[in-house]
């Protein structure tokens, strides 16, 4: 009989290593989440989330950082989404294969490979100094726009590619202009993909630190009133990750772990949301 394969001891060793690697990865993740929760969960309280750190009052809180984070997310996405989606539409719907497309796609790829600290340096000297915006939430947001642009462009492109060619021809054949067709047919069809890109971009902003340290600064106070909230764009403001970094540099590990818990929860939510969207996307594709 030949169905009995020769047992090779080396095979067993390799199986062992393969399983060990997978187990290591899972344990690593569980360990990270577990340890952060263990150290940080007791720090997180209503006062911690809604208060502001003040030496005078002896309070610690991250409300200011939460506001700054949301501020940068909104500003960045407001600018980056139209540009990123527009770029994807141009590449997919208008451009004919040629030099320009190659250059744009190459640039997008390079942009996604540049480390965040380089973005930080560039943002600091270009938006901060040349455009005289200084250390401000706007400088940080503009820097983040460049960083998340490839993410949005690529996700939108993928989504546009899944829209059947017949939809386009049908719309054009019925007398629609191209722009009308894009607005009423393509964009709604590609919406799940666009939203996925936006959510991934938000995740990137929430986790970003090096690029924001040099551009958005580190202030942690809450804006006082609505007008100050609006003018906040031109003032320095540190996001949650920046505050985490500063806290751990100063050895305030309790605060650092408290913020880490908040960040982990956000990251988990974002991961969950993209999963949900991906599922919905799949259903759409089959119809």
């Amino acid at each position: 009989m030949i169905d009995k394969k020769k047992v090779r001891p080396a095979d067993g060793v390799m199986y062992g290593l393969i399983y060990l690697s997978a187990i290591f990865v899972v344990l690593l993740l569980l360990g990270i989440i577990g340890y952060v929760l263990y150290r940080g969960i007791s720090v997180v309280s209503w006062d911690f989330l809604t208060g502001v750190t003040s030496v005078l009052k002896g309070t610690t809180g991250i409300a200011g950082n939460i506001v700054n984070t949301i501020y940068i997310i909104l500003l960045t996405m407001l600018i980056a989404t139209p540009i990123g989606v527009g770029a994807a539409i141009y590449l997919n719907e208008y451009a004919k294969p040629g030099k320009l497309v190659t250059i744009i796609e190459f640039a997008t790829q390079i942009l996604s490979g540049i480390p965040s600290i380089i973005f930080g340096l560039f943002g600091m000297i270009f938006f901060g100094q040349t455009l005289k915006l200084g250390y401000s939430l706007l400088t940080g947001a503009l820097t983040m726009v460049l960083m998340v642009l490839p993410l949005i462009t690529r996700n939108t492109q993928e989504a546009l590619k899944t829209v059947p060619e017949g939809y386009r021809q049908g719309a054009i054949g019925l007398g629609s202009g191209k722009w009308y067709m894009i607005r009423t047919i393509l964009l709604p069809c590609a919406m799940p993909g666009i939203i996925t890109g936006v959510i991934l971009a938000i995740g990137r902003i929430v986790g970003e630190s090096a690029a924001l340290l040099f551009t958005a600064g580190s202030a942690h106070l809450l804006p006082d009133g609505f007008t100050e909230f609006l003018s906040k764009a031109f003032h320095s403001g540190g996001t949650l990750t920046i505050q985490l970094y500063l806290s751990m540099s100063k050895g305030q590990y309790d605060i650092a772990f408290g913020i880490a818990v908040v960040l982990l929860v956000i990251v988990l939510l974002i991961n969950f949301a993209t999963k949900l969207l991906a599922k919905k996307f799949d259903v759409n594709k089959k119809v």
């Binding site: 986790g207 090096a210 990750t241 960040l263 990251v267």
Partner: peptide
């Protein structure tokens, strides 16, 4: 089970890796 673990590892902000590294 393992696939999502890999995805989550990629999503954890780098400062948290730094924090755990120190501690």
């Amino acid at each position: 089970l393992v696939q999502p673990a890999v995805e989550l590892l990629a999503a954890i902000p780098s400062v948290i890796y730094g924090l755990l590294g120190i501690i």
